[in-house]
């Protein structure tokens, strides 16, 4: 069986005054219908990896890869038309903060309809689908949210609407780029639970991009740890404590534990060798 997504030697670079700088430097992985986490600190290239898979590397940046296959289809030379078909129906992306990722002057309903009309025959059917999706993300009064503007919703509500919008076409792959980082801790768990259920029910593949190692280990099957644009370690989420790479160990150990104990908390010791 071909995997859902195959990535080999993915590189993303941006021009700077000192020539091109690579922010993703040869990332390779393959993904089935499972949950893969990409973990790393700010600037490690995890978000750009996610964007590159969608062909959304912001210009003047450039993404190249030795292989970038989605269900056997080569994405490297996809035409704009092919991208539109893929993005609208097969691959989706949930971003960090609904305050920015929702269009402020359009009602939630209109934004949902843009996604829904592409997969439905009639507008009425599309609207039913959109409302059903809002219900699926546990919004109690879907019609009210449908008519609301983004600024009238709280962060958690906005992010649920965003998830609903991205799951309307029932994609095969969802990329969630820090989907809960901008939310309150209590709301975070709620949104994660919703995401968890939808991904399981619909049998999607999930790439969960986060900087929160703990969160990821309880939520995903596999973890890629990125540092300075490279994958430094790949391991099963359940084996996180047995991480080999000192960076992963560092990330893991610098989290406070509720039982207390370690004081002061160790800070991350970086090694220039890792970035090679």
């Amino acid at each position: 069986m071909t995997p859902l997504l195959e990535v080999e030697d993915l590189r993303v670079s941006f021009p700077t005054r000192h020539g091109r700088t690579e922010v993703v430097r040869g990332v390779s992985f393959s993904l089935g219908r499972e949950r893969l986490a990409i973990v790393g600190e700010s600037g490690s290239g995890k978000s750009q990896t996610g964007r590159a898979i969608l062909g959304l590397t912001p210009p003047p940046g450039k993404a190249t890869a030795a292989r970038l296959n989605f269900e056997g289809q080569d994405l490297r030379n996809a035409t704009p038309k092919q991208w539109r078909d893929l993005r609208g129906r097969r691959i989706s992306l949930v971003m960090q903060d609904p305050k920015f990722s929702l269009n402020p002057v359009m009602t939630i309903g209109r934004q949902l309809m843009e996604a829904a009309t592409r997969t439905s025959q009639t507008r009425a059917e599309a609207k039913d689908h959109a409302l059903a999706m809002l219900e699926a993300v546990q919004i109690r009064d879907p019609l009210r949210v449908f008519k609301a503007y983004p600024h009238e919703l709280s962060g958690g509500m906005g992010q649920r609407a965003m998830i609903a919008m991205m799951l309307i076409p029932e994609p095969d792959l969802l990329i969630a780029d820090e989907p809960t980082s901008a939310l309150d801790v209590t709301v975070q768990i709620e949104v994660l639970r919703i995401l968890d259920r939808l991904v399981t029910d619909r049998g999607m593949g999930l790439i969960f991009i986060s900087h929160d190692l703990r969160l990821v280990s309880s939520f995903c099957d596999r973890v890629l740890v990125m540092y300075a644009g490279k994958v430094v370690e790949e391991l099963r989420a359940s084996n996180l404590a047995q991480a080999q790479h000192p960076y992963t160990q560092g990330l893991f150990n610098c989290l406070p534990k509720i039982e207390g104990g370690i004081r002061p908390l160790p800070t991350l010791q970086r090694d220039a060798e890792w970035a090679r």
Partner: peptide
Amino acid sequence: EYIITARVKGVSERRIIWGHALRN
């Protein structure tokens, strides 16, 4: 970012420019 959202939804480039960006 909402422009990226629209692109991910597969909205046409024309609609992104005239419907989303210019509207704002």
